[in-house]
């Protein structure tokens, strides 16, 4: 069985952002980039399947500029067998449609049985790429997957997907299939030293040249901007004791819970 895990490099959660000169996104100067946390769950699920079934080959694929190599190596450290990098120019905005097209091109003739994605990426939070890849390849898919089992003949995957307020639904898909993995499905591991050493030396497959998009079908990004400053929020100032006393007074004035 062959599993493709698509991984993305995103800014660390605690980052502070500035706009880039184009005004359409954030500047990557001084930002520490990491593996998208949601993709860690997707990769971990692929690793768990390999442990369960044996005979599973996992490829980690990412798109982006040269800096993206770091997270492909991270995926190798965590246990992926192969790493592939679709190289894009620096400061190049990739929409989900264009990303999906490149992934589709990569998958051709490679015979992946499962394509895994994190449910969203933490930077743009769109959750579109996985389902779009599935639609382009005409494969069945499920989003927000919180558990999976694969049939003995490797023909079917049965998943639970998360609905609202704790409800779930069970969906059955024939392979090959695309899943977007919800956070919390597993507990992502830490790399072993042997895998770290292997990852450092391993050669990545680098793909250059992007598949052009058919014109006019993609949403056009006009600008990025900071949200307006918070309207009414008041800071409670003073030393700790004073802050606590003030807050208790506010709670008593505004509510009857104290």
């Amino acid at each position: 069985m062959k599993i493709l895990v698509c991984v993305k490099q995103v800014p660390e959660r605690e980052s502070r952002f500035r706009l880039d000169p184009s005004g359409k996104g954030y500047s990557d100067q001084g930002i520490n980039f990491v593996l998208n946390p949601y993709d860690e769950y997707a990769l971990e699920e692929a690793l768990l399947i390999r442990e369960r079934l044996g005979q599973v080959e996992i490829t980690a694929l990412s798109l982006g500029p040269a800096r993206v190599e770091k997270i492909i190596r991270r995926a190798l450290e965590l246990g992926a067998d192969h790493g592939a990098h679709i190289l894009t120019p620096e400061s190049y905005y990739l929409g989900p449609g264009e990303t999906a097209l490149q992934i589709v091109k990569f998958t051709r003739e490679r015979g992946f049985d499962l394509l895994f994605f994190g449910i969203i990426s933490e930077d743009y939070m769109r959750g579109q790429t996985g389902p779009m890849v599935a639609a382009l390849l005409q494969l069945p898919f499920a989003t927000a997957v919180v558990s999976e089992t694969i049939s003995d003949d490797l023909g079917l995957i049965t998943v639970e997907r998360e609905l609202e307020a704790g409800a779930r639904e069970v969906v059955e898909l024939p392979l090959p299939a695309v899943l977007t993995i919800q956070s919390g499905i597993n507990r992502p591991r830490y790399p072993r030293l042997t895998d770290k050493l292997r990852a450092r030396a391993q050669k990545l497959e680098v793909i250059t040249g992007l598949e052009p998009l058919p014109p006019g079908r993609c949403a056009e990004l006009l600008r990025a901007f900071f949200p307006p400053p918070s309207p009414a929020g008041t800071f409670i100032t003073g030393a700790l004791e004073e802050q606590a006393e003030k807050l208790i007074r506010i709670i008593r004035e505004k509510t009857d819970v104290l």
């Binding site: 706009l19 954030y26 990004l221 006009l222 600008r223 900071f226």
Partner: peptide, 26 residues
């Protein structure tokens, strides 16, 4: 005014403004 949509990115630290190109449904 510009027929644009606003959405959050980066956990709400930034917003972005997008538009569906003229003649293209969305």
């Amino acid at each position: 005014e510009n027929s644009t949509f606003i959405r959050q990115i980066l956990n709400g630290k930034l917003l972005e403004e997008l538009k569906s190109p003229p003649g293209c449904s969305a």
